[in-house]
Amino acid sequence: MKLKHNFITTIVALGICLLLTSCGDEPKPKPEAFLRLDYNMGDYATYNNNCPYIFDYNTLAAVKDKGNCNFTIQYPKMKATIFLTYKPVNNNINLLLRDAEKLTYDHVIKADDISSQPFLNPANKVYGMFSQVGGDAATNAQFYVTDSTRHFLTGSMYFYAKPNFDSVMPAAAYIKEDMRTIMESLRWK
């Protein structure tokens, strides 16, 4: 009987030792992660006022007239803004194009890559370039459109925070699509 008791005690002690030593990995902290952000798809409406152009915009954003046919399109929940800047063409198209390209390539210091895609809409005489800037640059997307003779419009996206591409990527992707919609729907009056 004493042998049976010692055997059971030994088995229990051995079981406890196995349990204590089998979980020998030290806990490791989890890597930093970012929130998953999903945004509702907005409806689009045409913005039309006394300026020489009209465009479609996301109704979830707020369009603010800054005068001289310049606008901001604000996304308060994303802490971002699209800036639209209009300039008439007065035999200075080369200067306006150079300035628009310079604005894009000023971000090359912080950018991982810059890709540009031409835009052509001959039916509405809208021609331009859409540029995406990868990395921690101040702006993630920019565009310009012109009719080459009378009108020139630039658009750029900025966030109200220090650039961190990983954290702004969902919002940047959403707003890039809105910028494409603005550019593709733009019509000169």
Rank of each mutant, 00 (worst) to 15 (best):
N6H: 13
A123E: 15
D43L: 11
D112N: 15
D113E: 11
L37Y: 03
K125G: 06
N40C: 03
D56S: 15
V108M: 05
L96N: 03
P31F: 12
I16A: 13
Q117W: 05
T10K: 08
T181I: 10
V133Y: 00
C51V: 08
H151D: 07
A172Y: 00
N68A: 12
K162L: 14
A173L: 14
N40L: 10
V12F: 09
R98F: 07
D65E: 11
I73H: 01
T85K: 09
G135P: 01
R98T: 12
D166F: 02
D147S: 08
A161D: 14
K176H: 07
T9N: 13
K110L: 09
P27M: 11
P118I: 09
Y53A: 07
Y105K: 14
G128E: 02
D43A: 12
M78S: 06
T72Y: 04
F165W: 12
P170M: 12
P118L: 11
T10G: 13
R98P: 00
T149Y: 04
D147L: 10
K162D: 10
V145H: 01
A173S: 12
V133R: 02
A138T: 06
A13Q: 04
L153V: 09
L103Y: 06
I109M: 07
L35H: 09
W188A: 03
D178E: 06
G67A: 05
P76N: 05
K64Y: 07
K87A: 08
M169Q: 15
L186M: 15
